[in-house]
Design a binder for these strands. Sequence first.
DNA 1: TTTAGCACTCTCACATTGAGAGTGCTAAAA
DNA 2: TTTTAGCACTCTCAATGTGAGAGTGCTAAA
Lengths: 343, 343
Amino acid sequence: MRLTDRQKLILTLIIHEHLQSAQPVGSKSLVNKYNLALSSATVRNEMAVLTEYELLRQPHTSAGRVPTEEGYRYFVGNLLQKSGLPTNTRRTITHQFYQSRQDLEQWLKLAASVLANQSQAASLVTAPHSDKVIFKHLELIATHGRQVLMVAVFMGGEIRQQFIALDNSISQERLSQIASQLTHLCARGDINKISHVRDQLDPIGQDILNILLVEMTLIDKYTTGEIYLDGLTNVLSEPEFSESDEARQALHILEERSLLENLLASTVMNKDIDGIQVLIGGEGTWEELRQCSVVLARYGDPDSMTGSIGVLGPIRMPYDRTISTVRFVANVLSDLVSDTLAA
Amino acid sequence: MRLTDRQKLILTLIIHEHLQSAQPVGSKSLVNKYNLALSSATVRNEMAVLTEYELLRQPHTSAGRVPTEEGYRYFVGNLLQKSGLPTNTRRTITHQFYQSRQDLEQWLKLAASVLANQSQAASLVTAPHSDKVIFKHLELIATHGRQVLMVAVFMGGEIRQQFIALDNSISQERLSQIASQLTHLCARGDINKISHVRDQLDPIGQDILNILLVEMTLIDKYTTGEIYLDGLTNVLSEPEFSESDEARQALHILEERSLLENLLASTVMNKDIDGIQVLIGGEGTWEELRQCSVVLARYGDPDSMTGSIGVLGPIRMPYDRTISTVRFVANVLSDLVSDTLAA
DNA sequence: TTTAGCACTCTCACATTGAGAGTGCTAAAA
DNA sequence: TTTTAGCACTCTCAATGTGAGAGTGCTAAA
């Protein structure tokens, strides 16, 4: 399927027009609005060809044309030239980041918020995560009563923590001692090796080791830690989600963590050159995303820790703008993270 | 405004009927459905009285009656007898909790999930928080590069933590030393006292102390830490939220953390006997909640740490069921928390 | 290859209509 | 005094019809 320049132009204009109106686009109105040096009949003929190619679709026999998912894919893949964000937008975003606290969590929340606002859609941001989870350091902190906070640090700076309830209350000194012992025994170890040190521990140490092992299994299994969401209500303003049923389906995937993880896991693999991925209409795989598009990127250092950021909105989405925003925010996050993680 | 028993019965039945149908309830259908030993005319007369009292409302001149917010309030306040959850539901819930990991965070997430599922509405759960924030223990954990995780533990078991980026990379040993020094200097101190110890610290210690002070101010200011939400998409299935605009407004309050905190803060004060609060239709104060009702309870130990749990749904809500569920989950959480926090 | 012209199609907004459900009122019954 | 049967009236809602408007495909001429 090779399109002539004129066909490309018409496809582009139809997408552009449909983006604003959310209505089918007719030949006549297109010619008028964009002052084309063509008659509507010619445009009609070209439209017929594009419809033949399944890049356009007619909702009804005598209605205008609407881009198909395939049409959007062609547009994103072939017609969209890489455009940057306006300078003042970039400045605003950068400014927000450097004004926030020097805190990873703040940055991630802010990233989600910026993405949601800029794209007027829902956004998601995952914390950076490493493939290699090599244990580095353990800390046990008595909080109150029998409750203890266990913090495990892994190479690369990733941490996992959880509250645990011991059988008896133990002093902070004793806890620190156990933590130090475990840290030395397990240092630089992977999961298989670590289970061998159990014999050298007292019962409490063994309990904690067990929990640590569970946690390390989890960190291996779930490729993402915390997921930050924002702008969920934005998608409700889109006309395609005025049917609350459609909206529910779309938001459900964001609320159900396991769905979201699947989505991220399966798309993380095949990046295009830019590291930006655009998933349009579920691509036949994601039933819940049939009405949605997702723009994803990874940030961080591919050699150590990476995380994902993304925007979820209706298929009728301003892809150029969204892609630019996602790309820019990913770069900002990469810079911030690699900066603080550098020795 | 004193109602006769018959008026109370009719109000109850209308609410019950409207709960299922989401439609205005007419006199004739009410008599038929519930086999009342009354004629529809009599019921009509009583309905007229209740309408006079503004407990019922007529959407249109010749339509059936719908309960007003005031009607629901009367119902919840005067007609609802305290009913427990069915035994097997209680068992299911309890089972889920005791099967989950012995971890505060898991419990809170589970509580949100249980509330959302049982009530088929949106739920919120805040972590337990104490009014008195007395510093107890500080831990500094090197993660990677210049990034350090600071964990501050307060009396009662509350913790606050954040990543901080130091100017230079520092060894874990040195960090532990600083943490220990700060712990001793600040132990049992409140904010005002703590700032005096600054002189006794080296520059790095002073930096960290500054951040600690900020964090302690924050913990004082924001009365709630983490907030767990669940079941946001549930409310989208209700017919009153089929207008996506209504739905957006309702969900927005849950998404915007500051709004949510205001809501919690202002309602936490005046409890009814049971500790259960029911906020119907925003009560004139909460514009965003005009279409919603919220059922709130506190859990934990009033003398040390308490948190909030709640359910947000449409005004046409099964209050008896929701209240029972909220009460039960609050009790379960209280038990779990006080159990692990006991020495 | 492009375009003007034309007949045809389909949606959408709007008005009309009749059935159904509900109400209030009045006068009779309990 | 309270309840009820009966009746006229009101209002919604779904179904139906209608005409304007926008769009299409096709054909024949430019």
